[in-house]
Each structure stands twice: as structure tokens, then as C-alpha cells.
Computed example of a mutant assay.
Amino acid sequence: MRVEDIKIVPIGYFKTKLSPYYLLGNSFKIVVRAISYTKAVIRQRIENVVKEIKALGGVPNFFGHQRFGTIRPITHLVGKAIIRGDFRRAAMLFLAKSYPFEHPESRTAREELYRTQDFRKAMKAFPKHLYYERLMLKHLAKKPHDFKGAFKTLPIKLRILFPQAYQAYLFNKFLSRRIASGLPLNAVEAGDYIVKIEVTGLPSERFREIASREKLSEINSAIASGKMCLALPLAGFRQRLSEGFQGEIEKQILEEEGITLENFKVKGMPELSLKGGLRTALTALKDFKVEEISKDPFNPRKNMVKISFTLYRGSYATIFLRELMKPRNPIKAGF
């Protein structure tokens, strides 16, 4: 295998097929450049953020900005349209919704398609690098009303990303609204979901239940000792919402979105249906270390810092970096 800037080193043999199930987490080494603060201030600010995160019990386990598209955040919008069975809207969002930060040639082609709805003409205008859009356009040029068929020209691994992105968007809203409501992330209330934390540090796939009022003290003691964790639903046709106040938050958000859990059983394209599940509200920050604070050779009169850390699988390094860096412009920062 030859991929630029990637080196693969064999470490041994495995008896079964490798899958994400066997992944514990990901280790990161990050360089943050062009920092205006002094070395002492940089170190103090990092220490303050990490101390706050450790006191909370981890980083809020949001899905990262890139899950929805950084330059052109439409993945979850397409997913919502698919969930609602509106394949025409889904296709036009994917093909024709433009954003100011994408390449001008791409933006112009999308805007022209939005105005004309002419798929044959769009085939000539869309740049070659928009490979998947061109696959759909080729189908629509022949069958201009078959939007479902146009989506089926895309690989299943790409198509499933759309409803999964909307599922992630809903989770982020559940978590955001909980924080805004003043509910804790490192403790549970009656009606909240809890999951057991395995010795590996990963949440158990087997032990998940709703916290009862009678067991709150016992459960919160287990959370404080790292044996359990608050979890929130990943929406799906088999996943019940939380109960109690958190459940009311989730119901309100689904009502605002005009969505029911049954919608995740996608009619007309069942392979994109999502059963749902649970995701921990916090993710642990492991092995954090400030490797070096020094002058930035690429930015005169600025400093840089090298950090390293590990996150369990499924968690986003960019979420921690946002806590650390507080980027004012997510587009420019890339997260």
C-alpha cells in the first residue's frame, strides 16, 4: 500500500478479520502554531483547560464539525431529507446547495443547477473532481425524476454517511441542550441512560439502563469512580429516548425537527435505516502531555506548542482542540 505521508508497520498476526471493534482509541500529536501569548501564559492556559476537563470527567463527547462538512456543511441536511423520504430535496441539497467558502468553479456550477434544474447542462459544468455529484447527474440526465435511483449510483458507504450525520447532529443537539439547561454531564438524574465502563475504558455494549430514582446515589458513586457514565441516545427506530427531564429535551428537539424515531426506518431505501444506540456524554482525555513550547519558525514573533494525547474510539480530537484553542472561525481553523 502506498499513501503519501502514511507509513504502515506490521506488528503481528491476528486470528480473525480486523474491525473497528478491536480499536481502543487513537493517539494524537498536535502542533499549534502562531500563538501570540508568552510561553508562561500558554502553559498556564493549557493547564487550566485540562484541569477543568479532568474535574468534569472528560470532554463533552460531541461529534466534530467535520462530521457534517467543514467547508460545505450539508451532510446532515441531506441525511434529514433522506430520513423524511424526500429524495428530491436530498439530491438537490447534495448537488446544488452552494457555500461561499468552496471553490468558485464548484460554487458557480451548483448555483447554475439550482436556477435551471438542467442536469444535462450541469454534467458539462460540474468540475471533474466532483466525482460523486457527476455520478448522480449522469443518472438524472437520463431520468430527471428518479432521485432515488440517482442516490443509488453512490457507494453504500457514502450513502449511509448522510443519515448517520443527521443522527450525529441530533445527538449534538441533545447534548448541547442538556448543557444549556444546567443538567450535569458527570452525574445522572432519574430517567437518564447509564452505561457501564469496561476495564479497557470503553463503554459496555451489554450493560445499559435507565437510572431509577431509588438507585441514583449508587449510580452517581459509580460514575464518580469511573465505573459508569451518562449516555444519550443516538436516534434510531429501535432506540427509545431518555426519560425524565432529559427525555423531555429530546422529545422537544425531535418535534422542532419534525422527525420521529420511526422515520429512521427509511422507506424506499431500507439499507440506510438506522437502529440507533447510545453514546457517552463525556469522553476521557488520556495521556495528555505538553511536549514542547517554543518559537514558531514559520511565524516570526509567535510561539508554538506541541501536545500529545489519546482519545477512545469514536471521539473527535477536534472537539478537545476547540476547548483548548477556542477558534473564532471554525472554517479557517478547520474544526
Results as ranks from 00 to 15, higher is better:
268 G>W: 07
102 E>K: 02
323 E>A: 10
111 E>Y: 02
182 G>I: 02
90 A>R: 01
28 F>L: 02
116 T>W: 06
315 S>D: 03
75 T>K: 03
327 P>F: 09
182 G>Y: 02
313 R>T: 10
329 N>A: 08
216 L>A: 12
301 R>E: 15
191 G>E: 03
196 K>F: 02
24 L>M: 10
107 R>M: 13
270 P>V: 01
20 P>C: 07
221 S>Y: 02
235 A>N: 02
228 M>E: 14
75 T>A: 12
23 L>V: 14
103 H>L: 13
65 H>K: 03
293 I>R: 05
226 G>Q: 01
197 I>G: 09
102 E>L: 06
269 M>S: 13
241 L>G: 12
245 F>N: 02
91 A>S: 13
326 K>G: 08
258 G>D: 10
206 R>S: 14
38 T>K: 02
273 S>H: 03
279 R>F: 15
179 I>P: 05
13 Y>F: 14
244 G>T: 11
326 K>W: 00
328 R>G: 15
30 I>H: 07
281 A>C: 11
133 E>A: 12
322 R>P: 03
36 S>A: 09
203 P>Y: 03
322 R>G: 11
139 H>C: 05
63 F>T: 01
108 T>W: 06
89 R>W: 00
332 K>R: 10
199 V>M: 12
119 F>S: 03
193 Y>V: 09
26 N>D: 08
225 S>P: 06
115 R>V: 14
72 R>N: 02
246 Q>S: 15
143 K>M: 11
309 F>G: 04
210 I>T: 15
153 T>N: 00
190 A>S: 09
248 E>F: 10
2 R>A: 14
254 L>Q: 06
42 I>L: 05
239 Q>K: 01
140 L>I: 01
233 P>E: 10
121 K>Q: 13
317 A>M: 05
46 I>R: 00
291 E>S: 08
210 I>L: 04
2 R>F: 14
301 R>G: 12
5 D>A: 15
275 K>D: 11
290 V>W: 07
75 T>R: 03
179 I>D: 00
214 E>T: 15
148 K>W: 06
332 K>V: 15
234 L>Y: 06
199 V>I: 13
174 F>E: 07
160 I>H: 01
251 K>L: 13
46 I>K: 01
66 Q>F: 13
143 K>Y: 14
39 K>P: 04
141 A>K: 05
7 K>Y: 04
7 K>I: 11
306 K>H: 13
131 Y>E: 14
227 K>Y: 04
46 I>E: 00
139 H>T: 01
136 M>A: 09
32 V>P: 00
84 R>G: 10
32 V>R: 00
219 I>E: 07
291 E>F: 00
178 R>C: 11
155 P>E: 04
224 A>L: 09
284 A>N: 05
229 C>A: 15
103 H>I: 13
293 I>C: 08
251 K>W: 08
232 L>D: 01
87 F>I: 00
318 T>H: 05
307 I>P: 02
74 I>S: 13
235 A>G: 08
